[in-house]
Simulated scan of single mutants.
Amino acid sequence: MSTPKNLGPDESAWLTTLSADGSPHTTPVWFVADGESIWVATSVAAQKVRNLARDPRLSLAVDGSGQRPQVASGRSAERACDQHPDIIAAFAAKYRGWDAADPTHYGPRVLLEIQVDRWLLGGPG
């Protein structure tokens, strides 16, 4: 399913994954979109990464308080940062030079590639 390249000027979205007991685990994330996928960069040690390794289903809410909220359900796949320099560059462009692959503060990094299965609210078009 297509994903808008520009999901708005929002700097963050809310990513919800499923904990081991099935309860929701919601965290704010920085993201970029490339027209095919939505990408999140995070630490390999993050709870969301462990949750998605066990169960790749998720929901993502962008601009939930604005005039045009967008909410999607989908699935995530873990990707190596060094295999996607274009995505790392997109993060740097959006977030004032931030290096999404830099392990200095939170340890080794990983990209989460989100494929949207269904737009629950908003979306392309």
Rank of each mutant, 00 (worst) to 15 (best):
H105P: 02
D82A: 11
T16L: 04
S37Q: 11
S59F: 00
R68F: 07
S23P: 01
P85Y: 02
D55T: 10
D86N: 14
A53F: 03
G66P: 04
W98R: 12
L112Y: 01
S43P: 09
S65T: 05
D10M: 13
E11R: 12
F31L: 06
Y106A: 10
S43F: 00
A61W: 09
P103F: 12
L60P: 04
T16H: 14
V40Q: 06
G22S: 03
Y106D: 02
I87A: 04
Q115P: 09
F91P: 02
Q47K: 08
W39D: 00
A101S: 15
G123A: 01
G97W: 13
R50E: 02
T17H: 14
D99P: 02
Q47E: 14
S65E: 09
D21W: 00
L52S: 00
V44K: 15
L60T: 11
P24K: 07
D21H: 01
G97A: 06
S59N: 06
S19N: 14
N6Q: 09
R118I: 10
H105D: 05
Y95L: 09
L7T: 01
A77G: 09
N6V: 08
S76C: 08
S73A: 13
D21T: 02
R54P: 07
V62E: 02
N51R: 07
M1E: 07
R109L: 14
L58I: 13
L112G: 01
A93L: 10
C81N: 12
R57E: 14
S37I: 05
Q115M: 12
L111S: 03
P9L: 08
A93N: 09
L60M: 06
K94G: 11
R118L: 13
V116K: 00
G22D: 01
Q67W: 12
Q47W: 00
E36H: 05
D34Q: 14
A100W: 07
S12F: 15
A45P: 03
N6S: 09
P124F: 04
I114N: 08
I114M: 14
D99V: 07
